[in-house]
Structures are given as structure tokens and as C-alpha cells.
């Protein structure tokens, strides 16, 4: 109940923030533009729309998660609103749970809006999406969850600028961990080999949430996810979901530990 009140207030805070609308408008514009761009190519039109559209949803959603997430706790401390919040009968971890879920709800609403835009464009072009499309969106959302928890963690002890840099770096590196491992294995320096292996296992592999190419392929070819991935479809989704939740739980726990110990000077 108390977490819910904080979550609702965080949602209200986000939707009254100008950053959100700027990002949302851009996302919708790009998704809309993908329809026009696709007409430049012969055939493969829906592939271009989906490629641009899903990438826009992912990038803009992650940007929302970062730019709203980095201020989530920092702003409360900086503007001293936290003083009265924590003087109410609420535990510190409950406050974090509320803030976190409030932002996730905001992101979910935005994801739905952007998705509606993309589905609209696809329909206008005379195509339709299938259920695998929604698996893809689900994993994109899982990526938002993970990124939000990172932004929240940094927000507990760092300034927004630094938090943004940290979180953004994680996002980029998270998509390149396979490459890090690959380069490490090619290196002849044993230290580099070790370091790259350790990095590969510690950092979340965000490519686990990326099934865009596979999904677009099934839609274009009129197939279903289960057809292409021969029964591993739902298992893959489940694995990636658990993978995301596992990392999120650890990062969130770290945030709680830091936040619980903090003095508010």
C-alpha cells in the first residue's frame, strides 16, 4: 500500500516531466517515418518498418529509463523531499521499491503507446504482426527493467551526469559482451584473456534480450516463433526473463544496501 502510493507518485512525477514527452514524440516520429522510408525500397518494406520501429522502441525506452531513472533518488535527496517522506512510517527499502515500480509502470505505458504506433504503421502498409512480435516486446521490456535498476543504483549515490554516463556505458557494453569475449580469446596476452572472460561473466549480456532479427524474420515470412526456433521459443523467452530478473534482483539489492546505510545530510 505504501509502496503503491510512492509508485503512483513516481508515475505522476514522470508523466509531468518534459523529458518523457520529448523522447516519446521523437520515438513516434521515427516510427511514423519508418513507413515513409520503407516505400523507398522494393519488397522487404515491412522488414524496414519493423527494424526501424523496434530499434526506436528499444533505444527511446532505454533513454527514458536512464534519464528518468538517474534522477529517481538523486532528485529526492537534492530537493530534500526525502526528509519528510522518510519521516513517515515507511522503510527505506519500501521507498526504493515504490520508486522503481513507479518508473517501470511509466515505461510500460510508454512501451504500449510506442507499440501502438508501430502496429498502426505496419497495418497501414497492409501487413499484420503476430504473437512472436509481443515476445520481442516483452524482452525489450525486460531490458528496460534491468537498465532502470542500474540507473536507480547509481542514483542512490551519484550525481545525474555521472549516473547517466555509467548507465549508458553499461547499456553499450552489455550489448558487446560477446565481442569482448571474442577479442579476449583472440588475444595472446593471458591477462587480457582472463579479464575479458571475467567481464563477460560479470556484466549482463543484453543481447539475451534481443530477438528482434528472429522475430522480424518470422513476421516477414509469415511464420510463428515456434516454427523457426523448433520448440525452444518459449524456453528462450523464459530463460531471458529469468536472466533479467536475476541481474535486476542483485542490482536492486545493492541499491537497497547503499540506500539503507546512507546519511541524509
Amino acid at each position: 500500500m505504501r509502496e503503491l502510493a510512492i509508485a503512483f507518485n513516481t508515475f505522476r512525477e514522470c508523466i509531468r516531466d518534459r523529458i518523457l514527452y520529448n523522447l516519446l514524440i521523437f520515438a513516434i516520429l521515427i516510427i511514423g517515418l519508418s513507413g515513409i522510408l520503407s516505400t523507398l525500397s522494393i519488397g522487404e518494406q515491412v522488414r524496414i518498418i519493423l527494424n526501424i520501429g523496434l530499434a526506436a522502441i528499444e533505444i527511446f525506452g532505454v533513454m527514458m529509463a536512464i534519464f528518468l531513472g538517474i534522477g529517481l533518488v538523486y532528485k529526492e535527496i537534492d530537493r530534500r523531499t526525502i526528509y519528510t517522506i522518510l519521516s513517515k512510517p515507511i522503510k527505506r527499502y519500501q521507498f526504493l521499491v515504490g520508486k522503481f515500480s513507479g518508473l517501470l509502470f511509466t515505461l510500460l505505458v510508454n512501451l504500449i503507446i510506442m507499440t501502438a504506433g508501430l502496429v498502426g504503421v505496419v497495418y497501414l502498409m497492409g501487413w499484420h504482426v503476430n504473437s512472436t512480435f509481443f515476445y520481442c516486446l516483452w524482452l525489450i521490456f525486460m531490458e528496460f527493467v534491468l537498465i532502470t535498476s542500474l540507473a536507480l543504483l547509481f542514483s542512490c549515490f551519484s550525481t545525474p551526469t555521472l549516473s547517466a554516463i555509467f548507465t549508458l556505458s553499461f547499456f553499450v557494453i552489455g550489448h558487446l559482451t560477446e565481442d569482448i569475449k571474442f577479442f579476449g580469446s583472440r588475444s595472446e596476452n593471458p591477462f587480457l584473456q582472463k579479464a575479458s572472460t571475467i567481464l563477460y561473466y560479470i556484466l549482463p549480456n543484453l543481447e539475451n534480450f534481443n530477438i528482434k532479427a528472429l522475430v522480424i524474420d518470422t513476421i516477414v515470412r509469415g511464420l510463428y516463433f515456434e516454427d523457426v526456433s523448433a520448440g525452444v521459443g518459449l524456453k528462450l523467452i523464459l530463460f531471458s526473463t529469468l536472466y533479467g530478473l536475476f541481474y535486476t534482483a542483485i542490482i536492486f539489492l545493492l541499491a537497497v544496501i547503499i540506500f539503507e546505510k546512507r546519511d541524509f545530510k
Binding site: R2, A5, F8, R79, R80
Partner: peptide, 24 residues
């Protein structure tokens, strides 16, 4: 608190209502 500052995007009513929820 000293020199208090609250959620400026809330109206007075929303603000007290929110804190009332925290107090159940």
C-alpha cells in the same frame, strides 16, 4: 524539516493526499 521543500509538481491537495496514503 528546516526550509522544507516538497514535490513541486503536485497540488496542495494531491500532496497531502499522498502523504495521507503513506500514513495509511
Amino acid at each position: 524539516p528546516e526550509n522544507p521543500s516538497f514535490y513541486e509538481y503536485l497540488t496542495g491537495l494531491e500532496f497531502l493526499n499522498f502523504y495521507g496514503q503513506l500514513l495509511k
